[in-house]
């Protein structure tokens, strides 16, 4: 496979050329230590060193609000199934978030397939950006093995000082390089520098919790009745922040929004959260996860156990967003440590 390099001073041209043809999205500083993925026109808007954005790039793959069908009931029950799409290049996606997108891919490609997601996904070009060191203390990417690239990108940028090492992973990525005509071929010295960084990363990134990752699902199974869930439930405010910011939380609600004429309208999909009390409620009134502790336990199991059993994949990427955003300071790593510590 061919690799390339891009001198740092050419990044601005790269962004500008791409943004002539399509929307370019990148991490941008929005306030005190808060970053968001948003549209950019030039490189100086972009934060190359950034803490995981408030919302992960999930919002482009599975928008907070999207139309599934347009209806017209003036003459019977007529519907058109639609998907709203636009061509996007998302630049600067960390490897944890790339792993998150791969989790979403798994869910929405699982039969019955979700065409809205799959069609939209193909319109998005992904340019990853490797982390050379930890973003902050909330990350657990090494535990989940997501501090190193594992695919999921068209191009992967690695910052090697005055240039980016660029791994070309797809034909789409290669076309972007040809089109912009700013890249040079990577030679063995560049490759050597990349290898050095990767070696250095091995000493920086260590599993943040002292457990073999493969033991985590059975830990959660064993600890299903643990009092720790009750304690967490006492603290949890049930706000749903953790699910909103999670790169792999994909639960949704489906609602009808009639137009003012009440004859036509849309059926939309919006994000939902298993942390909300009515989430698992049925029309008879029963709620199957009534307590906050039950719901918190459900969420943790949906990251570390259920998807492993069902899809053979962890649904925690180690990005740390849930812990970073939690108003009650419920910390993911601390929770796993507590479960381990509790013993049998």
């Amino acid at each position: 496979m061919k690799n390339a390099i891009l001198k740092k001073e050419k990044l601005d041209d790269f962004i500008k050329i791409m943004s002539k043809d399509e929307k370019v999205i990148a991490p941008v500083l929005k306030g005190n230590q808060s970053y968001t993925f948003t549209e950019v026109k030039s490189a100086d808007e972009i934060s190359l060193k950034y803490l995981p954005t408030i919302l992960p790039p999930k919002k482009y793959f599975m928008p907070q609000h999207e139309t599934l069908i347009e209806y017209d009931k003036r003459n019977g029950q007529k519907v058109h199934c639609v998907v709203e799409v636009e061509d996007l290049v998302i630049f600067g996606v960390h490897t944890c978030d790339l792993a998150g997108i791969q989790c979403l891919n798994m869910i929405f490609a699982d039969r019955p397939k979700d065409m809205n997601y799959l069609i939209r996904k193909n319109r998005i070009t992904l340019i990853g950006l490797e982390c050379n060191s930890y973003c902050d203390e909330f990350a657990s990417c090494a535990l989940m093995g997501n501090h190193i690239p594992k695919g999921g990108y068209d191009l992967l940028f690695t910052d090697l000082g005055n240039y980016f090492f660029v791994e070309i992973n797809t034909r789409k990525g290669e076309e972007l390089i040809e089109k912009t005509n700013l890249f040079e071929n990577a030679d063995s010295n560049h490759q050597e520098e990349l290898n050095k960084l990767r070696k250095l990363k091995e000493s920086i990134f260590k599993p943040e919790v002292d457990i073999d990752k493969n033991e985590i699902p059975s830990l959660f199974k064993k600890k299903f009745e643990s009092k720790i869930w009750e304690d967490i439930g006492e603290r949890c405010l049930s706000c749903g922040n953790c699910t909103n910011v999670c790169p792999t939380c994909y639960c949704f609600d489906v609602l009808d929004i009639p137009d003012l004429n009440l004859k036509t309208g849309k059926r939309v999909r919006v994000w939902d959260s298993c942390q909300n009390e009515p989430f698992a409620k049925i029309s008879g009134g029963e709620s199957f996860r009534e307590k906050r502790g039950d719901r918190k336990r459900h969420r943790f199991n949906r990251k570390f156990r259920y998807p492993v059993e069902r899809y053979g994949k962890f649904f925690c990427t180690g990005c740390g967003r849930c812990s970073r955003t939690c108003m009650a300071k419920i910390d993911l790593k601390e929770t796993i440590r507590d479960l381990i510590k509790e013993g049998n």
């Binding site: 139309t67 599934l68 069908i69 019977g76 029950q77 007529k78 519907v79 058109h80 199934c81 639609v82 998907v83 709203e84 799409v85 636009e86 019955p112 397939k113 979700d114 065409m115 809205n116 069609i119 489906v254 059926r267």
Partner: peptide, 16 residues
């Protein structure tokens, strides 16, 4: 934003 019609959506309904 471009709108595409899909004919194999899981949300298609059959009138009854």
């Amino acid at each position: 934003m471009e709108k595409i019609h899909i004919n194999n959506s899981g949300y298609e309904i059959v009138p009854a």
